[in-house]
Simulated scan of single mutants.
Amino acid sequence: MSNPQAEIPIVVLSGPTASGKTTIVKRLLQESPVKLIKAISATTRPIRNGEIDGQDYYFLTPEEFEERRKNNELLECEQVHGLGYWYGTLKSEVDRAAKEGGWPFLEIDVQGTLKLKEQFPQTMTLFVRTSSDEEYEKRIRDRGTESEEIIEKRLATIRKELELAEYYNHVIINDELDRAVNEIGTILKQREQEINAGRI
Results as ranks from 00 to 15, higher is better:
M1F: 08
M1Q: 08
I8H: 13
P9H: 05
I10E: 02
V11M: 05
V11F: 10
V12L: 06
S14T: 15
S14H: 10
G15N: 10
P16N: 03
P16C: 03
T17N: 10
A18K: 13
G20Y: 05
I24E: 08
R27N: 08
E31G: 10
P33M: 04
V34W: 02
V34Q: 03
K35N: 01
K38M: 02
A39Y: 06
A39K: 05
I40K: 09
R45S: 04
R48S: 14
E51N: 13
D56H: 09
Y57K: 06
P62I: 00
R68Y: 06
R69M: 09
R69I: 05
K70M: 02
E73G: 00
L74H: 05
L75C: 02
Q79R: 05
H81T: 01
G82F: 02
G82A: 03
Y85C: 00
Y85K: 00
W86R: 05
Y87H: 08
Y87I: 00
T89M: 02
T89I: 13
E93F: 03
V94G: 00
D95I: 04
E100Q: 13
G101T: 08
P104K: 09
P104L: 01
L106T: 02
L106V: 11
I108K: 02
I108G: 06
G112W: 01
L114T: 04
L114W: 02
L114K: 06
K117Y: 04
P121M: 08
Q122Y: 01
V128N: 09
R129D: 07
T130L: 14
S131V: 04
D133P: 15
K138M: 13
K138S: 12
I140Q: 12
R141F: 01
R143G: 11
T145M: 15
T145D: 15
E146A: 09
S147D: 02
E148N: 13
E148H: 12
E148G: 11
E149Y: 03
I150C: 09
K153P: 08
K153Y: 01
R154M: 00
A156H: 10
A156V: 07
T157S: 14
I158E: 00
K160Y: 06
K160F: 01
L164E: 12
E166S: 15
Y167F: 15
Y168V: 05
V171A: 11
I172S: 12
I172P: 09
I173Y: 09
N174F: 06
D178V: 14
R179P: 02
V181N: 03
E183Y: 06
I184G: 04
I184L: 04
I184F: 06
G185Y: 10
G185H: 10
G185Q: 10
Q190D: 14
E192M: 05
Q193M: 12
E194D: 12
E194F: 09
I195F: 04
